[in-house]
Amino acid sequence: MSGNRERTGNREQGTGNGDSTDGWVAGARPATATSGIVENPFFEYLLRVADDRLVLGHRLSEWCGHAPILEEDIALANIALDLIGQASLLLKLAGEVEGKGRTEDALAYFRDAIEFRNVQLVELPNGDFAATIVRQFLFDAWDVLVLERLTAASNQALAGIAAKALKEAKYHVRHTAEWVRMLGDGTAESHARTQRALDDLWPYTTELFLGDAIDAEAVASGSGVDVESIRPRWREMVEQVLGEATLTVPKDGFAPRGGRTGRHTEHLGRMLADMQSLARAHPGAAW
């Protein structure tokens, strides 16, 4: 792994072993990290499902007041609200599964970047409107497939949250797919920007379909998704929309990874510094 964007950056925990592809080097693993030896795999799994939503929801909320048109300002804020709402329910459940008394707020505001389990795709800076829409579409198409499967989870609480989130995700993907079509099949400028965004973001989609032992255990217990198995359907959905949008599907190749075990781009730490600042400056603050 090389380059700036995929190197682990963290404000407090030091840096990861940039050459390793399967975890932190011995001795470099902070006490708070759960990568490597995992005490409670289902807690870990729920963090993955929750953190994708929390981080992407926060990224989208950064558009509030800045989107190119009022309607999209409202749309992005609404999608952010749905994702953060889902994250809140999932983190609450994760806290109960962990059984150490951590609330959803404790998990959202008092974990450092290395303890986050989201894919790197969702933590990248927003870029321009095309990049935000393309990322959202690539995620939403995946999310619908994931949530469809989680509605059948043996854990009833997870199944209930997934069924609710699925309705929201379908509304999201409908909206973002329509925007990808409009931007791709729009002006020369919008087409070029959308294709560039797609080319930049495509490598990060590989991580969405990488399962490991944590996923396998969740699948075995009846409360997980075999992410590799949904890739063909995802490609079909995505390629259809990209075709209608006159966009070229990028080739697979370089594929950053590591978010699921706490190895993130330098961008996540900065985002969390912003997201967590109020809760950390004023512990227990409420309104």
């Binding site: 009022l70 749309a75 609404n78 309705k167 993907v173 409908r174 797919a177």
Partner: peptide, 27 residues
């Protein structure tokens, strides 16, 4: 559920009941 809102059957205006309406914002 995946058919975009703007391609669905028109919605009647609650004030004048005209179906000559357009979606301004899905949210």
């Amino acid at each position: 559920e995946l058919v975009p809102l703007r391609r669905r059957a028109p919605v009647a205006c609650p004030y004048c009941h005209s179906v000559n309406t357009i979606v301004r914002s899905e949210f």
